[in-house]
Design a protein around this nucleic acid. Structure first.
Length: 255
DNA sequence: ATGGTTGCTTAGCAA
């Protein structure tokens, strides 16, 4: 089973690329982020024609997440399912072929010290609690998406430049470590322990041709499932050509 | 060095 995550930065703007990529990459499950459309504007017909079912938690203008799957998803759920509804559509879950799949779009945070950064930290606290309730680490579960966290120097083209930023600071590194310590394996790092590879490049300043990127998109799996992960990679080619997203797909293949 | 680019919405925000 091939599981991918891709922040498409508008599913409308990216639809031609998404459909082409589904045909060539042939993933079984795709976690999408930043749809930027409400549910009724999601291109369901096109995605179904490409051979996928879709579980969509959309939002107008900002955010929006989805799960695409070749086999019918079961028990679709949107948001944290706790006492306080999240006003932003950033999490959706469904069970595919016995695996609980969670697509997440972690808040960027804006700037350290702003209310939007406090929202990010609180959101990550709620994500941790959600994953514990969802059965991490014992349940076969994948949580994949745009985490808006740089885990380490290796995941950053220029650590000194990014240190202290809203994507890379000590507080976030500890939150990231705590998340993984719940019992989640970063499938890309599992197979590439020392390789520098990025999943995001700024649109500005020729960041991609200069390879000034960050690795902030992950496919995380619970331990028994991670033991079945045979390959994981980042589809860097998706940043090339006409109208790319600023993120590229990250893929993990499970036996 | 607060620039630069993209997308949504329409001048400004978020990333």
């Amino acid at each position: 089973m091939k599981v991918a995550t891709w922040n498409v930065n508008s599913v409308k703007a990216r639809l031609p690329r998404l459909l082409t990529w589904l045909q060539t990459a042939r993933p079984d499950v795709v976690c999408l982020q930043e749809l930027k459309v409400p549910n009724d504007a999601f291109p369901l017909r096109e995605v179904e024609a490409a051979g996928y079912h879709a579980v969509v938690h959309g939002q107008k203008t900002y955010n929006g997440v989805a799960i695409l799957a070749r086999t019918p998803p079961a028990e679709p759920r949107a948001g944290f399912e706790d006492a306080v509804p999240d006003p932003q559509a950033r999490l959706v879950a469904a069970t595919v072929d016995g695996v609980r799949v969670v697509s997440v779009y972690v808040p960027n945070g804006g700037e350290v010290g702003l209310p939007s950064y406090d929202y990010k930290i609180e959101w990550l606290r709620r994500l941790r609690a959600y994953l514990m309730r969802a059965g991490v680490p014992q349940r076969p579960l994948v949580v994949a998406g745009d985490f808006n966290i740089v885990p380490s120097d290796l995941d950053c083209h220029d650590p000194a430049r990014w240190e202290g930023s809203v994507l890379y600071n000590q507080e976030l590194r500890e939150i990231h470590k705590d998340l993984l310590n719940l019992g989640l394996v970063d499938t890309f790092r599992l197979h590439h322990p020392t390789e520098q590879a990025f999943s995001w490049w700024d649109y500005r300043n020729l960041a991609f041709p200069r390879n000034e990127g960050l690795r902030i998109d992950f496919v995380l799996a619970t331990p028994a499932l991670a033991a079945r992960c045979e390959h994981a990679w980042i589809d860097r080619n998706e940043r090339k050509g006409e109208k790319p997203s600023d993120h590229v797909p990250v893929i993990a293949e499970f036996r």
